[in-house]
Structures are given as C-alpha cells and as structure tokens.
Nucleic acid binder design. Structure first.
Length: 470
DNA sequence: ATGTCC
C-alpha cells in the first residue's frame, strides 16, 4: 500500500550515490510523480543523473540535480572551548552518557544555557531529559524524532468504583476506540481543523504527508506510548479547577505526532546536517538558523506537528469519554519533546526540551510513572536553573534490550497483578522494572514542581512489544 | 519514535 514509487535501494541500483540526494529524490517522486509509472520515473531519474547541470533550474528536479553535482563541504564548525555551566537534578541516578551529551551541547556556538532533568538518559543528539537554550537557532534533534510527543489527562465525572464494577466496558472502550502500532491508521476517521492548515499546502515536505496524517489522527503508535484508565487523587485543595480533594476516574494518554512528525524530523535533520557541519561527536546537534528559510520552515512544520499531536490526544479522549457517557471535569496536557520561544536571562531564547516537561511558574503538566507506578499532576515553580523544566517521567534504568533479557513474563504478570493493573498489549521492554523509581525522581525535582495530584493506572493499553523507543 | 529509504 506504500505510496512510494521508488526506494533508496532502487535509486542506488540506478546509480544514484549514497547520501542525502536519495531522500531528496524520494521526496520529489512522492510529490510530483504520484500517478507516473515506474518506467516513466526511471527514465527521468536516468536523465537527471546523466546530466544534472541541465536540471539545476528545473522546477521539479533542481534540488536533486544540485545534490548530484559535487560541491565543497562547508567548513566544520568547532565547538567552543568554554562550556556553559548548567544544573543537573538528581545526578546520582543519571548515566554518564547523558551528561557527556549535554556537555557537548552546551559547547555549541549557539548554546546559551542548559539543564539536565533527573530522568535523563542517553539519546541521539541531546540526551532524553536534556534542556538546551539557544539563540536564534533550532536543533531538530534537540526536539527529537517524535515532535510534540506529549501527555494528556482528562478527569471525568464517573464513579471510581465503576472501574471495578464496569471493568468490561472500560476495556471494550480502550480496545475499540484506540489504535496502536507503527503505521496504524483509522479506516474511517473524524476530521480536524489541524488537517486544513495552510502549512500542508505551503511547505513542500508537508504536502505529501497530509493524507497519512488524516488517517493517523487519533492513533497512538508504538514504543512507550499508551492510553490508560486510572484513578486521579487530587491532593491540592487550591487546584485550578476547584475540584474537591479526592478520587476521580481519569484517562491518561502518551503519544506524539506519528508519521507526520517523524518525516518532518528526518527531513530537517538531514538538511541541518548538510548546512551545519559539526565535529563528529556533535554532528547530530546540527542547527538551523531561524533567519533562514530552512529554519523558518522547520519552525512552522514543528509547530504543526505539535498541534497535530495535540489533536490526536483530543480525539482519543473525545471518543473514550463519549463511549463511557462521561463528562470531562478538568484537563491537563503538555508537550515534552518540543522547542519554544521563551524569555530567559532577559532575552528571547529557543528552549529545546527533549523529554522534559515545561515547568514555568504556575504551568501545569503531567509526569507519568510507569504502568504500575503513579504519575503526577504538577505545577511548575518557574525555577531558573532548570530553565523552567522538569522530568518527563521516571526515566529508564534499563534499555529495551536489557529489560527483555532480564525481566521474565512471570515477574511482569505478578507486578501487574500486585498493583491491580490490567494490561492490553505491551511487552517486557515496557515493564515497570525497566524504569527508575518515580518517587526518587520526584524528590530530585522538588524545587522544580509542586504536586497537585497523582494518577494511579488501572487499565493500560499499549502496542504489542516492539522495537526501539525514545 | 517511525512501516525501517539517507
């Protein structure tokens, strides 16, 4: 069912060189040759390859032709000798690789400030749990592959004991109204204003992604993404919604911008790495200058992917709430993979949070625990040294591979049973034991957020165990 | 993270 008319492998078989031209050509084919035959595509590809100079002004093939003509690589931009000093929260439990990655990031010439959250672990480019503020520059890998990955919690008016007495109905709703798995799409789907956004017409890479985004709206993907029913316990009597302290049924979801964001991230990361060549151990931190067309395009596409991720959560919640005949009493939501324009140190900075929760003063957010440990509704304290940020969860203490190798199905089953949690889907790689203790993580960020309430998972749906995350 | 392209 792929819309791709040509794969990277086929392009290389035609003589196209290994490198960014492959993906550029794939983009062009997807956008301009959707109805062409393989023969027609191969013919034009051969012509462009044979004489790229003849196509450098071509309306369709200019970018591919230009990429085929050898050019001098831009100079390698050195990192600064002097690093920006930054704060680490909960450093006892943070792996060395994550610190090393942020040490690199704060030596970028565009870096102004950084911080490392207590759930930090090694990622790609910026560590997960890393916060980096830059001046007028955005780093696609500082946002991450899943642009706008976020949390959404809806507190409902359903009686708490119904989670037990009507467990079958909750389970049926989760099974019927959520969809998981890489590439998952709804056959018949609701519409949403985000799908009509101008960016889908004005930005080339987005044109070919609109149809898939429409199908994937309201789906959850794979990896550590979940939708779950549980019990919220409000502990702060001064909460923003005027809710009486006590227990409520709630739905909590964690997912991002699906294929749309992944494609945007991939495209602009490749572009950034072409335009901004850094030393090898920092190459993934390539940035786009916000005064350039590429930088402005990424900013718009990133924001669209963020709004799309939000719309996905809202649709999931809307369907589940309708299915249960409930009314929403309150909602908390936040991105934790994103970049924002914010004022810090008296100037406007681009703050990248890659697996970090915004925690400006009075800003509400959700920090999940694990499928058996509680998550927390938090209110930011606006701490300067964390760049108004907190952790985005408990953080992994085991890689997926290690979790699968060292945790048994029996241990996982017992853990779920002991905590009264029903799991639909999921795998050992997401077992509670693969995560740090959320209470230790929360203690390490007591200066960053205050707790408004907590969420205890009762019925969790995830994709069936699968490949790599973060 | 993503139906795995560089």
């Amino acid at each position: 069912m792929s819309e791709l008319k040509m794969t990277g492998k086929q392009l290389r078989a035609l003589g196209y060189p290994q490198g960014p031209v492959i993906s550029t050509a794939i983009d062009v084919i997807a956008q301009h040759y959707a109805t062409a035959t393989a023969e027609e595509i191969e013919t034009v590809l051969a012509k462009v390859l044979a004489d790229p100079a003849a196509y450098t002004e071509d309306a369709v093939w200019a970018e591919v032709a230009t990429a085929l003509i050898p050019e001098e690589r831009p100079e390698i931009i050195p990192l600064r000798e002097q690093a920006v000093d930054y704060a680490i929260f909960g450093s006892d439990a943070i792996e060395e690789g994550a610190v090393r990655q942020l040490n690199n990031a704060v030596r970028l010439p565009v870096a102004v400030a950084g911080a490392l959250m207590p759930d930090a672990h090694q990622g790609y480019g910026l560590p997960i749990g890393g916060v980096l503020a830059t001046e007028n520059a955005v780093i696609p890998y500082g946002v991450g592959v899943d642009i706008g990955c976020r949390m959404c919690l809806s507190i409902l008016d359903l009686p708490v004991d119904s989670l037990t007495t009507k467990a079958g109905e909750y389970e049926k709703a989760l099974k019927n109204k959520t969809k998981f798995g890489a590439g998952a799409e709804w056959k018949r789907n609701d519409d949403d204003a985000v799908l009509e956004r101008n960016e889908f017409r004005e930005i080339q890479i987005l044109r070919s992604l609109q149809a898939k985004a429409a199908g994937q709206l309201g789906t959850s993907g794979s990896g550590n993404h979940f939708v779950e029913w549980g019990v919220v316990t409000i502990t702060d009597a001064g909460n923003e919604w005027g809710l009486a302290p006590g227990d409520y049924v709630a739905v909590l979801s964690h997912s991002g911008s699906r294929g749309l964001g992944a494609q945007v991230a991939g495209h602009y990361t490749r572009l950034a790495k072409e335009l901004c060549v850094l030393p090898k151990d920092a190459q993934h931190l390539a940035w786009l200058d916000l005064n350039t067309e590429a930088g402005q395009e990424y900013w718009l596409a990133m924001n669209l992917a963020g709004d799309y991720a939000s719309a996905c959560h809202h649709l999931i919640h809307k369907r589940l709430i309708a299915e249960m005949g409930a009314t929403m009493l309150a909602r908390v939501e936040n991105h934790h993979n994103f970049a924002w324009k914010e004022m810090h140190h008296g100037k406007e900075l681009i703050v990248h949070r890659k697996g970090a929760t915004p925690a400006g003063k009075g800003v509400l957010g959700i920090i999940p625990g694990s499928m058996t440990a509680p998550g927390f509704i938090v209110r930011g304290k606006g701490e300067t040294t964390s760049l108004h940020s907190a952790s985005h969860g408990a953080g992994r203490q085991m890689s997926r591979t290690k979790a699968i190798a060292s945790i048994t199905n029996e241990e996982m089953r017992k853990m779920l049973q002991d905590n009264g949690v029903t799991l639909i889907g999921g795998g050992l790689d997401e077992a509670p034991g693969a995560y740090k203790d959320i209470h230790t993580v929360m203690a390490a960020q007591a200066d960053l957020v205050e707790v408004v309430g907590q969420f205890q998972p009762k019925m969790v749906r995830m994709a069936d165990g699968g490949p790599a995350e973060d």
